[in-house]
């Protein structure tokens, strides 16, 4: 016997109403806010080129902006670090001694500390 497909929401649908409440509040705020006049970009400006110039601290772009060289370098480092971190987290532990992450919920450590029988 088959049943019609059900939307898989997960538990606690009611909790999601909190998100809806937040949307209502934000929408009301936005609609009542007085935003400044849209200035827009100059006609025919090369937006992507301006972005590139802004990244490298070169003021050659037609749209004005700040310089982001330091942030560029830092984000490069951050991506590198994230990569290494992900690799480290995913690594399977080689042996007992070189364990840096408790990947079994600490069961082995608990048995060793409390002198219980190994499973």
């Amino acid at each position: 016997m088959t049943t019609r497909p059900r939307l898989n929401i997960g538990t606690n649908l009611v909790a999601g109403l909190g998100a809806f409440a937040l949307f209502v509040v934000m929408a009301l705020t936005i609609l009542n806010a007085s935003l400044p006049e849209v200035q827009g970009f100059p006609e025919g400006a090369n937006v992507t080129a301006s972005i590139g110039y802004a990244i490298f601290n070169l003021s050659l772009g037609s749209v004005p902006g700040e310089s982001f060289l330091a942030a560029f370098i830092i984000i490069a480092i951050t991506l590198d670090v994230a990569l290494d971190g992900a690799v480290h987290l995913a690594r399977r532990q080689r042996s007992e001694k070189q364990q840096t992450i408790l990947s079994d919920g600490g069961k082995r450590l608990k048995s060793v500390v409390l002198d219980e029988e190994d499973e």
């Binding site: 606690n12 909790a15 909190g18 409440a21 937040l22 509040v25 934000m26």
Partner: peptide, 15 residues
């Protein structure tokens, strides 16, 4: 999830 719910409700109430 429960912690996130609390955060959300708190933020909404504050706003």
């Amino acid at each position: 999830n429960d912690y996130a719910v609390l955060l959300t409700l708190g933020l909404t109430a504050l706003l």
